[in-house]
Write a protein that binds this DNA or RNA. Structure first.
Lengths: 157, 157
DNA sequence: TTAATTTAGGATAAAGGAGTCTTCAATACT
DNA sequence: AGTATTGAAGACTCCTTTATCCTAAATTAA
């Protein structure tokens, strides 16, 4: 099991790229998909969820695409995750026991709660602008590809 | 997304129950399944994985069932998770980027690494005997059911 | 107005997760 | 020997995830 679904990590990668390259303009999903080496059709469906949640604005036709509805600085990672995967990860019992809590805890409740809060805080603290700056300043990665490809990507970012 | 698959949480609940009630004897999977309100067939498949991994011993026929191959104290939660879900959760990049690491990190690498290690340590530290003791001493839950059902379960544990 | 561009939305399909059911093999007990 | 019990193993179903592809609708620009 992964922490996040594929759709979710695609959504995160796409929004970070948008924060890096968007510059307030609508950016075509096809361009985002190409730069991240993802299926444009699939990414379109994922970003539609972010549009429906109000994180993105979309515009059809030439000069169309998607852009943030608010400054990237104000969009926290947890909003992207919540729109795609939901908040179950940050809210539910590790043993999947409905109703687990301080009143009727599962045997892992106390320990897992601590990590759950810490994890939630991480996702509530990181925003898309900050992550974009990380990528820009340190040349960090957004793609799974060969080393050469990473270099090429960093050069024309 | 949940932290662990359903199979995995069923496996964890079952092994904790086994640690509570097993007493060194083979315990029929059907009994475990009934007490946890799970499908016996499905639980059989899950526990087979633990048998294949060497965590459990199984025995067919009357007086058969499953029991631990080692003292429950020595079986860490991460072994159960590893046998069912694999260790991806404790090893992989949060953004699903293959090869993410200190050399070629993703924008979340530094932060997620810390949590990943902490989470791994939790699962490496908790053992089945300890979790069983938690349940026994504090009357904690292993089932998702009505309040009445919880009481009934605790009374004849 | 026409053509090109771009998101929206639906149909379809492959793969895996979750769960059920049936049969087979091993074992204990009479 | 025969029977009941129990895990092992496979077939099968249902649902969700992860896609792919096609068409429709909106929009821009010539």
């Amino acid at each position: 099991m992964a922490l996040l679904s594929k759709s979710c990590v695609y959504g995160i990668r796409a929004t970070i790229l948008l924060a890096i390259k968007g510059k307030g303009e609508f950016m075509p999903i096809k361009d985002i998909a190409e730069q991240l080496n993802l299926s444009a059709h699939f990414l379109t469906k994922i970003l539609q969820q972010l549009t429906e949640e109000g994180l993105l604005l979309s515009h059809r036709g030439p000069k169309g695409g998607v852009k943030f509805s608010r400054p990237a600085r104000e969009i926290k990672l947890i909003e992207v995750v919540g729109a795609i995967d939901g908040l179950e990860l940050f809210e539910e019992c590790a043993l999947g026991l409905h109703g687990c809590g301080t009143a009727t805890p599962c045997p892992l409740h106390e320990k897992w709660s601590v990590h759950k809060v810490a994890l939630r805080t991480l996702f509530e603290t990181e925003d898309l602008e900050k992550l974009a700056e990380n990528v820009k300043s340190a040349g960090l990665r957004l793609r799974t590809l060969s080393q050469l490809d990473i270099i090429e990507f960093n050069n024309n970012k």
